[in-house]
Amino acid sequence: MSVLIQGSQLREINLGRGVESKASGALDASTTPSLFTITGGEVFITAMWAVVTTAITVANTVTIQANPTTGDSAAIVSGDLGTTDTAAGTVLGTDDNAAFARNGKPAQAVVSTGTVELDSNGTSVDGALTVYCTWVPLTDGATLVAA
């Protein structure tokens, strides 16, 4: 008798647990909404990508950043998404310089207790993103959940 492994089981074995952020909604220049919350230590984000849910048409820089409870914030991926319109449905990964890339490879990062945030760098953003990630704990008991 053969045993079949389901797609969800293969993803978890290869990439870790999956989680989806809530849609960002339009970003006000003064807000930095949390996408994910990390508790209990360090986790390895094995893959992070975004899907544009509402077109981004105004020139601006958007950054997905780690904001640990202790330590410095650091960009995971960043880039201008509106100078050349980014249509709804576009999948955003990263390039070799940690800049957003259409259909780019997923970003990876080690993040610590705190949050992963979406920063519009002081500019209002007219579109919206949903961010997805897979992760594994590096510290026993560490977790990552949607904020």
Rank of each mutant, 00 (worst) to 15 (best):
A29G: 11
P68M: 02
L35G: 10
S120T: 05
L10I: 11
A50M: 11
E12H: 13
A99W: 04
L35F: 08
P33C: 06
E117H: 06
G7I: 00
P68R: 00
L15G: 09
K105M: 14
V62A: 09
T70D: 06
L4R: 00
W135I: 04
G141D: 12
T115C: 01
T57E: 08
D119I: 07
L138M: 15
V131A: 10
M1V: 06
V51P: 05
D140Y: 11
G89N: 09
L138R: 14
A59T: 08
T53K: 07
L15H: 07
G7E: 05
Q9F: 05
W135T: 08
N60A: 12
L4D: 13
V111R: 04
G16L: 11
V110H: 03
P137D: 06
I76V: 03
G40R: 02
T94C: 07
N103F: 11
A29S: 15
T31E: 10
D72Y: 10
V58N: 08
R102T: 05
F36S: 01
A55C: 00
D28G: 14
A26Y: 12
Q65N: 10
S120I: 00
T63L: 08
A98P: 03
A147M: 04
T69L: 05
E20H: 00
S124D: 01
V91M: 08
A29V: 06
G25Q: 14
S73M: 11
P137E: 06
T84L: 12
V145Y: 01
V131P: 10
R11V: 13
D140A: 15
G18S: 15
A142I: 11
T39W: 03
A29H: 15
E20I: 08
V110G: 01
V136D: 04
V110Y: 02
T31S: 15
T123K: 15
A142G: 14
F100V: 00
V62H: 05
F100T: 00
V145L: 01
N67E: 07
V58H: 05
P68W: 03
D85I: 02
K105I: 14
T31F: 05
V91R: 11
N97C: 02
D85T: 07
G79A: 07
T69K: 04
T86I: 02
V3P: 00
D95H: 13
V51G: 07
E20F: 04
V52M: 09
A26V: 15
N14Q: 06
N60F: 02
V131K: 14
M48N: 01
T123C: 08
D140W: 06
V3D: 12
S30E: 06
I38H: 02
F100N: 00
